[in-house]
């Protein structure tokens, strides 16, 4: 089937958009909160709760976006994270969660292989932003 030529500008714009998403790490991406909740349940919920003040094997993720790393007073962090001196911004979360935890923060006890799917990562971060 021959497409009408009017479709080409749209396709071109989509390709440019995709390129920007791929090469610019700080690009704001759209995540699906509902899909992110599913991702949380599959990838995170065994070790992390989203309830305020409730720590499991890992610390509570209530209010995680924008929180300084290693800052919950009632959770016993590793030295690796307590001295990391970073804040869990969206970009930091995206970087951290896209690789093995032991690579992102050597010395951590977190066992996590990373999320390879950028869309799933965006969905997850979108969900975490709502947990506050």
């Amino acid at each position: 089937m021959i497409r009408p030529s009017s479709a080409r500008p749209g396709a071109f714009a989509a390709a440019i958009g995709l390129l920007l998403v791929c090469v610019l790490p700080g690009t704001v991406r759209g995540g699906d909160v509902a899909a992110g909740k599913d991702a949380f349940r599959s990838e995170c919920s065994e070790c992390h709760s989203i309830s305020k003040g409730r720590n499991k094997k890992g610390p509570s993720l209530f209010g995680i976006v924008g929180r300084p790393a290693g800052s919950l007073p009632d959770y016993h962090y590793t030295d690796a994270l307590r001295t990391a001196h970073w804040t869990w911004t969206e970009d930091k979360l995206r970087s951290y969660l896209s690789q093995r935890a032991k690579t992102a923060n050597p010395g951590t006890r977190m066992k996590f292989d990373g999320i390879n799917d950028p869309q799933e990562l965006d969905d997850l971060i979108s969900f975490l932003k709502t947990v506050r």
């Binding site: 499991k56 094997k57 009632d74 959770y75 016993h76």
Partner: peptide, 19 residues
């Protein structure tokens, strides 16, 4: 057991939330 439960068993039942 879920895979998480299997890992807990293999950890010697020692995993905790550090509290």
């Amino acid at each position: 057991l879920t895979p998480y439960g299997m890992r807990f068993k293999l950890s010697g039942y020692t995993d905790s939330n550090g509290s």
